[in-house]
Amino acid sequence: MRPADLAREHGISTQAIRNYERDGFLPPAERTSTGYRIYTEQHAAALRAHLALVPAYGHATAGAVMTAVHADRLGDALTELDRGHAQLLRDRETLTAVRAAVGHLADGAAPGTGLPAPSGPRSVGEVAHRLGVTPATLRAWEAAGILAPGRDRATGHRRYLPADVRDAELAHLLRRGGYRLEHIATVLRQIRTAGGTGELTAALDGWQQRLTDRGLAMLTASARLDDYLRLRSGSPDGLDLKST
């Protein structure tokens, strides 16, 4: 096969094929006596696997998986996939937690998101530690209109009351869902001023669909990668487990 033959199946450029080979996402191609690349069905299977991995796990993980496979580090490749599955599970659990929080909001109660509710004012550092983000992130959310903590009159330091911590938790969960800062600001402003949760519920439904799409993409990627590994190992029965 020529680069154009591989590229045509996926609607990409021949330069992309050469770049994938250069970056280790495809195995090295043999060359003709005049220097032209020769690709085989194994290269086509590798390309299908790589392109299926991207929507499932992201560009970085897809590249790490393929380069690990081509360096005969199958265990490392599988670890990368495991991390992606673990992240998807965490995101599903996060979505469940924020749905519960929204349910409490709809009832007019102060919600939790899987963490014990704070009993009093918290500093920006304490809230950042609680969420696993940096204080700079919280200040950026404040600048975007997402958070509105008060200030200590004596020191001028930010004071996050329980409602502020709730807003920070919801913002963090929605960011994990891929929502832009301006969208999150609108949702939280609605909650603070009108107590309505309709827009947030719709946002969570969209997040649920994206998680489902990602899970299905992972199934497809696993199948394409398995096809390639079988071709690469030369065994119709599977892999040489010693390589893991």
Rank of each mutant, 00 (worst) to 15 (best):
L241C: 08
P135C: 05
K242P: 05
P135E: 04
Q209W: 12
T197N: 08
A128G: 04
L131Y: 09
L204P: 09
H104I: 00
L131S: 06
D205C: 02
D167Y: 00
A217V: 00
R159Q: 13
R151A: 07
P118A: 10
S123M: 11
P236A: 01
D107K: 10
R175C: 07
G120N: 12
E199G: 11
A194W: 10
L239G: 12
P118I: 12
V133N: 02
A154D: 12
G195R: 09
A106I: 03
R224T: 11
V187D: 10
L170R: 01
G178A: 00
R139W: 06
R214Q: 15
L211C: 03
A148N: 10
G238Y: 00
R159I: 10
L138F: 08
L188C: 06
Q208G: 09
W141K: 13
G178F: 00
A128C: 07
R192D: 01
R210V: 12
R139M: 05
G156W: 11
D226V: 12
A171G: 06
L204A: 10
D240T: 06
A144P: 11
L211I: 08
A143I: 03
P111V: 04
I191R: 09
T193I: 12
P162L: 03
L204F: 04
R139A: 06
A168S: 08
P135H: 05
L200H: 06
I146T: 07
A223Y: 11
A143K: 15
Q190W: 05
W207Y: 15
S119T: 13
P162I: 00
A154P: 02
R139L: 03
L204T: 12
R224H: 15
I191E: 07
M218N: 09
A221S: 01
V133K: 00
I146V: 14
H129E: 15
D237H: 13
P236I: 02
G196D: 15
R158I: 03
V187G: 11
M218S: 15
G195H: 05
R210S: 05
P236W: 05
A185S: 13
Y228P: 01
D107C: 06
A109T: 14
D237G: 12
L147F: 05
I191S: 08
K242N: 14
A171Y: 04
Y179G: 06
V124Y: 09
L174P: 01
V102C: 09
P116C: 13
R224E: 15
R189I: 07
L181M: 14
G114K: 05
T212L: 13
A185L: 06
A221R: 00
Q208Y: 11
R214A: 14
D213W: 07
A217S: 10
G206M: 01
